[in-house]
Amino acid sequence: MTYLAKPKFRHPSLVPNKLGFTHRDYEGSISTLCAGCGHDSISTALIQACYELDIEPHRVAKLSGIGCSSKTPDYFLGQSHGFNSVHGRMPSVLTGANLANRDLIYLGVSGDGDSASIGLGQFVHCIRRAINMVYITENNGVYGLTKGQFSATADRGSKSKTSVNNDAPIDLIGMALLAGATFVARSFSGDKHQLVPIIKAAISHKGSAFIDVISPCVQFNNGAGSTKSYDFVREHNAAVNRLDFIEERDEITAEYEPGTVQEVEQHDGSILRLHKLHLDYDPSDRVHAMNYLQQHHEKGEVVTGLLYLDPEPRDTHAALNTVDVPLNSLGTRELCPGSKALEGINDDYR
């Protein structure tokens, strides 16, 4: 909550990035989430990623729904416009915002309640429209703000302090793959080294990028029996790859075992260097990814890493053939056909 103002002074040793911004310039207000909340780690990773990518903070628009996760855009990128919309409906607001101005970076922040329950429809439809965005779910399996009810991503048999979840889980990764997301990753809020490059790669991806981040709720879903706890995810984290995000191609200097490193060039020229941890995992094969995820979920594993990437993504603006300039920059002269055109139109109605 922003009534907790953050002091403006900063440590003199903070290093500015290429644009002259320091880490501090990417921060927001002080978080009002619980101490130890996974979401705060994700905010930190987002700050890190934007700082490292030399993004002008005001070129990012942050949009969210309702819930603990949706409060977080207040806690990072304080120089960006943010929109805390309604529960489960962030995707549609983001869609409209993106149509209005194709030049900004759109960051959608949501949770498992927001995206897998009330907003499941909007989540899927936003992705199938190939909106150029980074869509992050901060996934903890529970409703935090209303005090600990299970959400739709909670695994069957998962235990909270007071109850056991009997319903089958919704797998957001699987949904995103089915709906046609062109960048799909899963990570863990407790693994910054994995998460930050994934966020950077997602931002540079010019299409629908979805990142599901398992983010433990220390208050309501971090005990024994929970499959979204710090302990459980650490023990069952099956990372299929580790990612280096490289803005410009450099020479690979380190020695790698043959077949363990794969490079993918994205449309903007950035390079994703994947260090394969599971040699049988192929992130360019969507159907393979879906099968792999299902098989490993059955075994109780939490598969993480860059799970699917189409380096030639679709974008809704291309499909709609919209002009290159943002629609919101067009004025009367560009938009109004004028009285002369109206004469001919009137004739058509006679």
Binding site: F83, V86, R89, S92, G96
Partner: peptide
Amino acid sequence: SAIGAVIGAGWNGA
């Protein structure tokens, strides 16, 4: 979703 997109676009100046 329709009204959500309208609101998002209106917020963003279209």
